[in-house]
Design a protein around this nucleic acid. Structure first.
Lengths: 148, 148
DNA sequence: TATTGTTATACTCTATAACTATA
DNA sequence: TATAGTTATAGAGTATAACAATA
């Protein structure tokens, strides 16, 4: 590959990235609106979505997964518990450990939230099926090469 | 358009949106690293980038543009002014109004920051020129239809 | 009297350090 | 003695309300 091809690629990648960035900006306000709608702050909404519905985990693991301090997990869990969306279960093998599990209400709220969040921006829906398929195909190719 | 085509489009758009979302997540830590690097908090970095380098604006207009409270603009301006990146100029036509203008150092810092921020995620650079051109073309088509 | 920006104050989100209970 | 989670406290970032200067 010659230097000009590399330059082309970098310029195109920058352009693509900037366009995606703008798309995200356009969605920001709506995310805030969703959080107001469900009565959760953005941080608690994010935490609810980040809980694995099938595998309740110790709070310490969550702090590691979420790259935040344990005290922050306590804070997030407190509010979600008050809202009735999670419960703390003492680990049967180590009484120090508390496992955070979604309640039935928590599962339902999380599902609703996921559906709302995965709704694409209106701008994407103005594309044709072919254009969307092209986007999807190229973006799918990324995932396997991510670490390259 | 039949109902199945509409369903296809929505499913594809959701998939595309989710893939873009993951790409953004992959970039999040790096944005924090950049802000540490330049010695600005993320909020002040964002403010510096959001200032128009060619058209200094009254603080009230900035609050409107940024959809935040005027007191928050005061807070952001204070720190950027302490850093030597902006200066408050009293409007010649209305002594109540303060116009926030980038200093020379502010212009330079903003330019550096923009270059760092516009660097695309590594994953995008693994695509071929053709793939990137396809992405860019489709995403360019979005912009004009945004409000549709 | 209305408006611009500031100050005082409060709330959210995050972190660090000290604490408790268990191990 | 070490570890899991909590509490106390602090700082960043945002908002609302009261205020000063100017219009």
């Amino acid at each position: 590959m010659g230097p000009s091809e590399r330059d082309d690629r970098e310029a195109l990648a920058s352009s693509v990235w900037q366009r995606m960035f703008e798309l995200f900006q356009s969605r920001k306000d709506e995310l805030l609106a969703i959080s107001a709608e469900v009565g959760l702050t953005p941080a608690h909404m994010h935490a609810l979505l980040a809980l694995d519905p099938d595998a309740p985990k110790p709070m310490g693991s969550l702090a590691a997964d979420w790259k935040c301090d344990a005290s922050n997990v306590t804070f997030l869990a407190d509010r979600l518990e008050e809202a009735g969306y999670v419960e703390r279960r003492v680990s049967p093998t180590d009484r120090r450990v508390k496992i955070l599990a979604l309640t039935d209400a928590g599962h339902a709220a999380r599902d609703r939230l996921r559906r709302r969040m995965s709704e694409p921006p209106d701008a994407l829906l103005t594309l044709t099926v072919d254009q969307l398929a092209a986007l999807d195909g190229v973006l799918a190719a990324l995932r396997s090469d991510e670490g390259a």
